[in-house]
Write a protein that binds this DNA or RNA. Structure first.
Lengths: 125, 125
DNA sequence: TTACCGGGTTACAGTTGCTCGAAGTCAAAT
DNA sequence: ATTTGACTTCGAGCAACTGTAACCCGGTAA
Protein backbone atom coordinates (compact mmCIF):
# COMPACT_ATOMS: atom_id res chain seq x y z
CA UNK A 1 0.00 0.00 0.00
CA UNK A 2 1.90 3.03 -1.21
CA UNK A 3 0.41 6.50 -1.02
CA UNK A 4 1.28 9.56 -3.03
CA UNK A 5 2.12 12.88 -1.46
CA UNK A 6 -1.34 14.12 -2.33
CA UNK A 7 -3.01 11.24 -0.54
CA UNK A 8 -0.93 11.72 2.58
CA UNK A 9 -1.79 15.41 2.57
CA UNK A 10 -5.48 14.52 2.34
CA UNK A 11 -5.22 11.85 4.98
CA UNK A 12 -3.30 13.86 7.55
CA UNK A 13 -4.13 17.45 6.72
CA UNK A 14 -0.42 18.28 6.82
CA UNK A 15 0.82 20.40 3.93
CA UNK A 16 3.43 19.04 1.49
CA UNK A 17 5.73 21.88 2.56
CA UNK A 18 5.55 20.70 6.10
CA UNK A 19 6.01 17.04 5.21
CA UNK A 20 9.13 17.83 3.22
CA UNK A 21 10.27 20.13 5.99
CA UNK A 22 9.87 17.39 8.60
CA UNK A 23 11.78 14.98 6.42
CA UNK A 24 14.58 17.48 5.84
CA UNK A 25 14.83 18.16 9.54
CA UNK A 26 15.00 14.48 10.34
CA UNK A 27 11.75 14.50 12.30
CA UNK A 28 10.45 11.98 9.80
CA UNK A 29 12.69 9.34 8.20
CA UNK A 30 13.67 9.59 4.54
CA UNK A 31 10.79 8.46 2.36
CA UNK A 32 10.96 5.68 -0.20
CA UNK A 33 10.98 6.93 -3.79
CA UNK A 34 9.98 5.36 -7.07
CA UNK A 35 12.30 5.23 -10.10
CA UNK A 36 11.64 8.93 -10.77
CA UNK A 37 12.42 10.06 -7.28
CA UNK A 38 8.73 10.52 -6.48
CA UNK A 39 7.90 9.86 -2.86
CA UNK A 40 5.80 6.82 -2.06
CA UNK A 41 4.60 6.60 1.50
CA UNK A 42 3.98 3.29 3.20
CA UNK A 43 1.20 2.61 5.69
CA UNK A 44 3.74 2.59 8.47
CA UNK A 45 5.13 5.92 7.33
CA UNK A 46 1.66 7.45 7.47
CA UNK A 47 1.39 6.09 11.02
CA UNK A 48 4.64 7.89 11.84
CA UNK A 49 3.30 11.10 10.32
CA UNK A 50 0.20 10.80 12.46
CA UNK A 51 2.24 10.26 15.59
CA UNK A 52 4.36 13.31 14.81
CA UNK A 53 1.19 15.26 14.17
CA UNK A 54 -0.30 14.16 17.46
CA UNK A 55 2.84 15.07 19.39
CA UNK A 56 3.18 18.34 17.52
CA UNK A 57 -0.45 19.25 18.16
CA UNK A 58 0.31 19.08 21.85
CA UNK A 59 3.03 21.66 21.41
CA UNK A 60 6.00 19.31 21.70
CA UNK A 61 8.90 21.02 19.88
CA UNK A 62 10.25 19.39 16.75
CA UNK A 63 13.62 18.91 18.42
CA UNK A 64 12.02 16.68 21.04
CA UNK A 65 9.91 14.82 18.53
CA UNK A 66 13.11 14.14 16.61
CA UNK A 67 14.75 12.91 19.79
CA UNK A 68 11.79 10.63 20.39
CA UNK A 69 12.01 9.32 16.82
CA UNK A 70 15.69 8.58 17.28
CA UNK A 71 15.03 6.75 20.53
CA UNK A 72 12.37 4.77 18.74
CA UNK A 73 14.88 3.78 16.07
CA UNK A 74 17.32 2.66 18.78
CA UNK A 75 14.98 -0.14 19.79
CA UNK A 76 13.47 -1.47 22.99
CA UNK A 77 16.41 -0.46 25.15
CA UNK A 78 14.96 3.05 25.08
CA UNK A 79 11.44 2.09 26.08
CA UNK A 80 11.59 3.46 29.65
CA UNK A 81 12.88 6.81 28.45
CA UNK A 82 10.24 7.06 25.76
CA UNK A 83 7.61 6.16 28.33
CA UNK A 84 8.80 9.00 30.51
CA UNK A 85 8.66 11.43 27.61
CA UNK A 86 5.13 10.39 26.79
CA UNK A 87 4.07 10.65 30.43
CA UNK A 88 5.54 14.11 30.74
CA UNK A 89 3.81 15.15 27.54
CA UNK A 90 0.57 13.67 28.79
CA UNK A 91 0.75 15.96 31.81
CA UNK A 92 1.38 18.95 29.61
CA UNK A 93 -1.59 18.10 27.44
CA UNK A 94 -3.80 17.83 30.50
CA UNK A 95 -2.56 21.27 31.59
CA UNK A 96 -3.26 22.67 28.15
CA UNK A 97 -6.76 21.28 28.17
CA UNK A 98 -7.50 22.83 31.52
CA UNK A 99 -6.06 26.15 30.39
CA UNK A 100 -8.26 26.04 27.32
CA UNK A 101 -11.27 25.25 29.49
CA UNK A 102 -10.49 28.33 31.55
CA UNK A 103 -10.23 30.43 28.41
CA UNK A 104 -13.52 28.97 27.26
CA UNK A 105 -15.13 29.98 30.55
CA UNK A 106 -13.80 33.47 30.13
CA UNK A 107 -15.22 33.61 26.62
CA UNK A 108 -18.59 32.43 27.87
CA UNK A 109 -18.51 35.00 30.62
CA UNK A 110 -17.77 37.77 28.15
CA UNK A 111 -20.52 36.50 25.87
CA UNK A 112 -22.95 36.54 28.77
CA UNK A 113 -21.98 40.14 29.53
CA UNK A 114 -22.58 41.08 25.92
CA UNK A 115 -25.96 39.40 25.96
CA UNK A 116 -26.91 41.34 29.05
CA UNK A 117 -25.74 44.53 27.36
CA UNK A 118 -27.73 43.79 24.22
CA UNK A 119 -30.87 43.13 26.21
CA UNK A 120 -30.44 46.46 27.91
CA UNK A 121 -30.45 48.12 24.48
CA UNK A 122 -33.59 46.30 23.49
CA UNK A 123 -35.37 47.49 26.58
CA UNK A 124 -34.65 51.17 25.87
CA UNK A 125 -37.80 53.21 25.31
CA UNK B 1 -4.56 50.57 42.70
CA UNK B 2 -1.45 50.85 40.57
CA UNK B 3 0.76 47.84 39.93
CA UNK B 4 4.38 47.76 38.92
CA UNK B 5 5.61 45.79 35.96
CA UNK B 6 6.89 43.13 38.32
CA UNK B 7 3.51 42.68 39.94
CA UNK B 8 1.77 42.37 36.61
CA UNK B 9 4.31 39.79 35.53
CA UNK B 10 3.65 37.82 38.71
CA UNK B 11 -0.10 38.17 38.41
CA UNK B 12 -0.37 37.18 34.77
CA UNK B 13 2.69 35.07 34.11
CA UNK B 14 3.42 37.15 31.01
CA UNK B 15 7.00 38.28 30.64
CA UNK B 16 7.92 41.96 30.66
CA UNK B 17 9.29 41.53 27.15
CA UNK B 18 5.94 40.34 25.97
CA UNK B 19 4.03 43.05 27.79
CA UNK B 20 6.16 45.75 26.21
CA UNK B 21 5.86 43.98 22.88
CA UNK B 22 2.07 43.91 23.10
CA UNK B 23 2.01 47.58 24.00
CA UNK B 24 4.35 48.45 21.14
CA UNK B 25 2.22 46.49 18.70
CA UNK B 26 -0.94 48.19 19.89
CA UNK B 27 -2.47 44.99 21.21
CA UNK B 28 -2.55 46.64 24.61
CA UNK B 29 -3.13 50.38 25.05
CA UNK B 30 -0.31 52.70 26.09
CA UNK B 31 0.32 52.35 29.81
CA UNK B 32 0.20 55.22 32.29
CA UNK B 33 3.62 56.26 33.51
CA UNK B 34 4.84 58.00 36.63
CA UNK B 35 7.04 61.11 36.56
CA UNK B 36 10.05 58.96 35.66
CA UNK B 37 8.37 57.22 32.81
CA UNK B 38 7.93 54.05 34.86
CA UNK B 39 4.84 52.10 33.90
CA UNK B 40 2.01 51.91 36.43
CA UNK B 41 -0.73 49.47 35.57
CA UNK B 42 -4.30 50.03 36.68
CA UNK B 43 -6.68 47.27 37.74
CA UNK B 44 -8.54 47.70 34.49
CA UNK B 45 -5.31 47.40 32.53
CA UNK B 46 -4.54 44.12 34.24
CA UNK B 47 -8.01 42.94 33.24
CA UNK B 48 -7.15 43.82 29.65
CA UNK B 49 -3.90 41.91 29.91
CA UNK B 50 -5.79 38.89 31.18
CA UNK B 51 -8.28 39.08 28.34
CA UNK B 52 -5.47 39.28 25.81
CA UNK B 53 -3.81 36.34 27.51
CA UNK B 54 -7.00 34.32 27.37
CA UNK B 55 -7.58 35.09 23.71
CA UNK B 56 -3.95 34.46 22.90
CA UNK B 57 -3.94 31.15 24.77
CA UNK B 58 -6.65 30.02 22.39
CA UNK B 59 -4.39 30.71 19.43
CA UNK B 60 -6.09 33.90 18.27
CA UNK B 61 -3.49 35.86 16.31
CA UNK B 62 -2.31 39.18 17.71
CA UNK B 63 -3.67 40.99 14.66
CA UNK B 64 -7.17 39.83 15.52
CA UNK B 65 -6.78 40.57 19.20
CA UNK B 66 -5.72 44.05 18.20
CA UNK B 67 -8.76 44.36 15.98
CA UNK B 68 -10.93 43.23 18.87
CA UNK B 69 -9.30 45.79 21.17
CA UNK B 70 -9.96 48.53 18.63
CA UNK B 71 -13.60 47.51 18.29
CA UNK B 72 -13.84 47.58 22.07
CA UNK B 73 -12.51 51.12 22.07
CA UNK B 74 -15.09 52.12 19.48
CA UNK B 75 -17.88 51.52 21.95
CA UNK B 76 -21.16 49.66 22.03
CA UNK B 77 -21.86 50.12 18.34
CA UNK B 78 -19.39 47.25 17.76
CA UNK B 79 -20.96 44.85 20.25
CA UNK B 80 -22.54 42.52 17.65
CA UNK B 81 -19.28 42.20 15.75
CA UNK B 82 -17.32 41.51 18.92
CA UNK B 83 -19.91 38.95 19.90
CA UNK B 84 -19.43 37.20 16.58
CA UNK B 85 -15.66 37.18 17.02
CA UNK B 86 -16.00 35.66 20.46
CA UNK B 87 -18.46 33.05 19.24
CA UNK B 88 -16.17 32.08 16.39
CA UNK B 89 -13.26 31.84 18.77
CA UNK B 90 -15.35 29.78 21.16
CA UNK B 91 -15.89 27.25 18.38
CA UNK B 92 -12.20 27.14 17.66
CA UNK B 93 -11.40 26.55 21.29
CA UNK B 94 -13.87 23.69 21.43
CA UNK B 95 -12.18 22.22 18.36
CA UNK B 96 -8.79 22.62 19.95
CA UNK B 97 -9.94 20.90 23.09
CA UNK B 98 -11.29 17.96 21.15
CA UNK B 99 -8.08 17.74 19.13
CA UNK B 100 -6.08 17.72 22.33
CA UNK B 101 -8.31 15.01 23.73
CA UNK B 102 -7.61 12.93 20.67
CA UNK B 103 -3.89 13.49 21.09
CA UNK B 104 -4.26 12.50 24.72
CA UNK B 105 -6.00 9.28 23.72
CA UNK B 106 -3.18 8.55 21.31
CA UNK B 107 -0.65 9.13 24.07
CA UNK B 108 -2.55 6.82 26.39
CA UNK B 109 -2.71 4.18 23.70
CA UNK B 110 1.02 4.40 23.12
CA UNK B 111 1.63 4.22 26.84
CA UNK B 112 -0.54 1.13 27.06
CA UNK B 113 1.47 -0.47 24.28
CA UNK B 114 4.67 0.29 26.12
CA UNK B 115 3.30 -1.20 29.32
CA UNK B 116 2.40 -4.35 27.46
CA UNK B 117 5.87 -4.45 25.97
CA UNK B 118 7.50 -3.96 29.35
CA UNK B 119 5.49 -6.76 30.87
CA UNK B 120 6.58 -9.05 28.11
CA UNK B 121 10.19 -8.35 29.04
CA UNK B 122 9.52 -9.10 32.66
CA UNK B 123 8.01 -12.41 31.74
CA UNK B 124 11.11 -13.53 29.82
CA UNK B 125 12.77 -16.61 31.37
C1' DT C 1 4.50 16.95 -31.36
C1' DT C 2 3.41 20.02 -28.19
C1' DA C 3 1.38 21.37 -24.17
C1' DC C 4 0.28 20.68 -19.72
C1' DC C 5 0.08 18.44 -15.25
C1' DG C 6 1.77 16.82 -11.25
C1' DG C 7 5.42 15.49 -9.14
C1' DG C 8 10.54 16.27 -7.96
C1' DT C 9 14.85 19.32 -6.45
C1' DT C 10 17.55 23.36 -3.91
C1' DA C 11 17.74 27.64 -1.88
C1' DC C 12 16.25 31.24 0.27
C1' DA C 13 12.96 35.03 1.83
C1' DG C 14 8.85 36.14 4.67
C1' DT C 15 5.65 35.62 8.75
C1' DT C 16 4.29 35.27 13.59
C1' DG C 17 5.16 35.73 18.19
C1' DC C 18 8.03 36.08 20.99
C1' DT C 19 12.87 36.40 23.46
C1' DC C 20 16.84 38.49 24.46
C1' DG C 21 21.10 41.41 24.42
C1' DA C 22 23.36 45.89 23.87
C1' DA C 23 23.84 50.35 25.36
C1' DG C 24 22.35 54.02 27.39
C1' DT C 25 19.34 56.87 31.19
C1' DC C 26 17.57 57.80 35.67
C1' DA C 27 16.06 57.59 40.64
C1' DA C 28 15.85 55.40 44.92
C1' DA C 29 17.92 52.37 48.29
C1' DT C 30 22.06 50.39 50.84
C1' DA D 1 29.35 55.52 46.00
C1' DT D 2 27.47 51.83 44.07
C1' DT D 3 24.12 48.73 43.24
C1' DT D 4 19.44 47.78 41.97
C1' DG D 5 15.83 47.96 39.07
C1' DA D 6 13.16 50.40 36.49
C1' DC D 7 13.04 52.64 31.74
C1' DT D 8 14.34 53.56 26.50
C1' DT D 9 15.41 52.03 21.35
C1' DC D 10 17.31 48.99 18.18
C1' DG D 11 18.03 45.06 16.29
C1' DA D 12 19.27 40.15 16.14
C1' DG D 13 17.74 35.33 16.80
C1' DC D 14 14.58 31.54 17.16
C1' DA D 15 10.76 28.05 16.06
C1' DA D 16 7.87 26.31 12.83
C1' DC D 17 6.21 26.89 9.17
C1' DT D 18 4.86 29.00 4.40
C1' DG D 19 5.74 30.21 0.18
C1' DT D 20 8.41 31.65 -4.08
C1' DA D 21 11.80 31.03 -7.73
C1' DA D 22 13.81 28.41 -10.97
C1' DC D 23 14.75 24.47 -12.44
C1' DC D 24 14.01 19.02 -13.99
C1' DC D 25 11.37 14.85 -15.35
C1' DG D 26 7.78 11.56 -16.94
C1' DG D 27 3.05 10.54 -18.38
C1' DT D 28 -1.17 11.80 -20.69
C1' DA D 29 -4.33 14.38 -23.86
C1' DA D 30 -5.27 17.28 -27.97
Amino acid sequence: MAFTMKEVVERTGISPYTLRFYEKEGVLPAVDRDANGVRKFSDHYVDCVEMVQALRSTGLPLAEIKEYAELYKSGNRTLPLRKMMLLSQKNKVEDQISRLMKALEKLNYKLALIDAQENRFERLP
